[in-house]
Design a protein around this nucleic acid. Structure first.
Length: 507
RNA sequence: CGGGAUGUAGCGCAGUCCGGUUAGCGCGCUCGGUUCGGGACCGAGAAGUCGGAGGUUCAAAUCCUCUCAUCCCGACCA
């Protein structure tokens, strides 16, 4: 039994990161591919994570003055066409509804019929359809700012998909706001980026870099795009949220006009911002290990797995009684703003098997309860952020306090670990040679985990950006907001540069 | 949409090159028993239009043609 080295997930991260990712999702039972190309089925454990993300973010949106509403999933083609860059950016990935009816064909199947006079686009994002409403809602400067959020599903017909990271249909929220002035809209754009960064840090335990996108990475139709970028354990960057300053582009396209304080008609200034189920992908890749998912307590669907251990019916009765006491302890209990949920796992499986089940699901704490614990009026507690065999006996009378403070410790531990990882793999690079070496795997056929975030100079020329991209598949993830103005030479062309940007391979 | 590969039980695969009894194996599942605090074991059992259509043949998972789907590598992307 050489089980010591066995990991719950095979392959390990080092062996094959992409496959490891899929296996973590499978082992934790988060989601699966459906029969519909590129579309996933989100299973209860995965969907509960999304609901927790929604709950926390939704509160933050309300606190910043936003209200939820819902707009149609279908966008008339003519609406979509109004903003030229926008169309161009999304045209290649639109699902389009052209018919409204099915009729029997001769062969016992069905054929589409009832062609629509105007095709409907399944929303890939809602700027244009929401803009149409905003145009009706905004007449006076007194109607502004208009601060709306929508929780919805959207469709982008992607060629290659990966669960949570890129699917044809995904769930997200999109905030859409209209303002009186450019400054106000820009403030809103930056404020919501801050909200995202704060959420990522406080709930997902993921440190993110806030920055501005280069022109080539900008949202189609936006004047300026901001993003939060997180480092995954394979040292690639994952864009985890975006916030766009749309200027008056969409206001002009949708005729969002208002009468200003001087009595003149003026176009509004708009913003839009969103995060999606991709955050779950970020969560997985930021914290999980070779034993499976690891969930920050603030976002975990449940916090305590209770695993009764017994041999016969007599023991079972006593142990189950004792388990109920523990469950009672946490009933309707809160840790900060998080309701504590417990899972009683009394399935007829061995203790280890049940333990491993919950390890793979990433539950923060596991509590084993057996006859010995009843005798000592204690329980055995194991933490997901420690080794699987690392258990500690905790007296029942201290259990609640112990668990609540340990959840806080775990939450912090994950954040600190992710932060340390990012720091370790973020480097300042000033020589082109070194830059190319940094982003080139030693083993070409089976690339090892390499690279990271390179903090290097860029002259601002899109050609240099393109050069790096085609040579190395490395892109400018963002121009960090917290920047030190510093003279240097562009990593690609050597010309004078005034700032460093973040280069990385990305998802 | 270009290049490569694969479709056989819920999942992972063998069998296909070289056609030939009842199409196998592992995991999972069901039932019974022994177990249970480092991923259990024994016994019994259920489950398969061999991706689909057509063709060759006495005979097709196996050969041929067409087709559909999926995966990987590119181009594109929250």
């Amino acid at each position: 039994m050489s089980k010591q080295k066995r990991t719950a997930i095979e392959p390990t991260r080092d062996q094959n990161y992409a496959e490891w990712y899929q296996q973590v999702i499978k082992a934790a039972d988060l989601a699966e591919n459906s029969d519909v190309r590129g579309c996933m089925v989100i299973k209860p454990w995965g969907y509960a994570i999304w609901e927790n993300i929604q709950r926390a973010l939704d509160g933050m949106f309300r606190d910043t003055g936003h209200r939820n509403a819902y707009f149609p999933i279908f966008i008339p083609k003519s609406y979509f066409e109004k903003e030229a860059e926008h169309v161009e950016g999304f045209a290649k990935e639109c699902a389009v509804v052209t018919h409204s009816r099915l009729e029997d064909d001769a062969a016992g199947g069905l054929k589409v019929a009832g062609e629509l006079t105007e095709p409907l686009i399944v929303r890939p994002t809602s700027e244009t359809i929401i803009g149409a409403s905003f145009a009706r809602w905004v007449n006076s400067y007194r109607d502004l700012p208009l601060l709306i959020n929508q929780w919805a599903n959207i469709v982008r017909w992607e060629m290659r998909t990966r669960l949570f990271l890129r699917t044809a249909e995904f769930l997200w929220q999109e905030g859409h706001t209209a303002h009186e002035t450019s400054e106000e809209a820009m403030d809103e754009t930056r404020k919501m980026l801050d909200v995202y960064a704060e959420f990522a840090k406080d709930y997902l335990a993921i440190p993110v870099l806030k920055g501005e996108k280069t022109a080539s990475e900008r949202f189609p139709g936006a004047v300026d795009t901001f993003c939060i970028e997180a480092m995954m354990q394979d040292r690639k960057a994952l864009q985890s949220g975006t916030s766009h300053f749309l200027g008056q582009n969409f206001a002009k396209a949708s005729e969002i006009k208002y009468q200003n304080r001087e009595g003149e008609m003026e176009y509004a200034w708009t913003s839009s911002w969103g995060v999606s189920t991709r955050l779950i992908g970020a969560l997985i890749m930021a914290h999980s290990d070779d034993n499976g998912l690891a969930l920050p307590p603030k976002i975990a669907p449940s916090h305590l797995a209770i695993i009764p251990i017994y041999r016969d019916e007599e023991e079972k009765a006593a142990v189950m009684d004792y388990c109920q006491k523990v469950i009672e302890l946490f009933k309707k209990e809160y840790w900060e703003d998080i309701r504590i949920y417990t899972e009683l796992d009394d399935r007829d499986l061995t203790g280890s098997e049940r333990n491993w089940h919950w390890i793979k699901k990433g539950i923060p704490l596991r509590i084993e309860i057996g006859p010995r614990d009843i005798a000592s009026e204690a329980v055995m507690v194991a933490r997901r952020d420690k080794e699987p065999r690392d258990k500690q006996s905790v007296p029942l009378q201290n259990l609640k306090e112990y668990c609540l403070s340990t959840l806080a410790e775990i939450q912090d531990a994950y954040y600190q670990r992710a932060l340390a990882f990012r720091e370790e793999n973020t480097v300042k690079i000033d020589s082109k040679d070194e830059f190319y070496k940094f982003f080139t795997a030693k083993n070409k056929n089976k690339p090892e985990i390499h690279g990271g975030f390179a903090h290097s100079h860029w002259c601002g020329d899109p050609a240099c950006e393109e050069q790096i991209k085609s040579d190395l598949k490395v892109t400018i993830r963002c121009i960090p907001l917290e920047k030190e103005t510093e003279e240097g030479q562009c990593i690609a062309c050597g010309k004078t540069s005034h700032e460093r940007v973040i280069f990385a391979k990305s998802y």
